[in-house]
Amino acid sequence: MSSHRGPHRGVIEEEDATTLKLGEGYEESACLFISEVKILLEATQRPNTSEVYQKTVNYVNQFNRFTNADVVREVRKGMNEEPIRTILKGFELTQLANLCCEEAEEAKALVPSLANKIDDDALQNFLNTILDLKKFQT
């Protein structure tokens, strides 16, 4: 490979989850957590044999955290509640729903952009709502 890099290449490398630079068209797009992807994929009953599709189905089945559609709806509702939705971006909330952290400290280590935005108590509150939903689902 040559050491010369095209101008567009630099633009792509600027994207970074820790500073929430998501790239063109993505900042305003809705993020989906794994259980939502599973529900959407199951709703489109269309044979699809592409490798990308099969691998995704396998992945969402293994990491599906919330077992029924009602719980998934409740999680999404929790993410849309004030004040959490104005403090945090959809990308961060979705990461929290995917990772299901138990402690605020753990969440801040895994999602560094949270660090100076929200205090531990408020974050712990949000994590607890998700954990409770996960714990009591049937």
């Binding site: 490398e13 994207e15 970074d16 989850a17 820790t18 500073t19 998501l22 790239g23 993505y26 990491f63 990461q95 995917n98 990772l99 895994l110 999602v111 560094p112």
Partner: peptide, 9 residues
């Protein structure tokens, strides 16, 4: 879409 710095399972 994957991002640098993202934590995933």
């Amino acid at each position: 879409k994957p991002y640098k710095g993202e934590v995933v399972d």
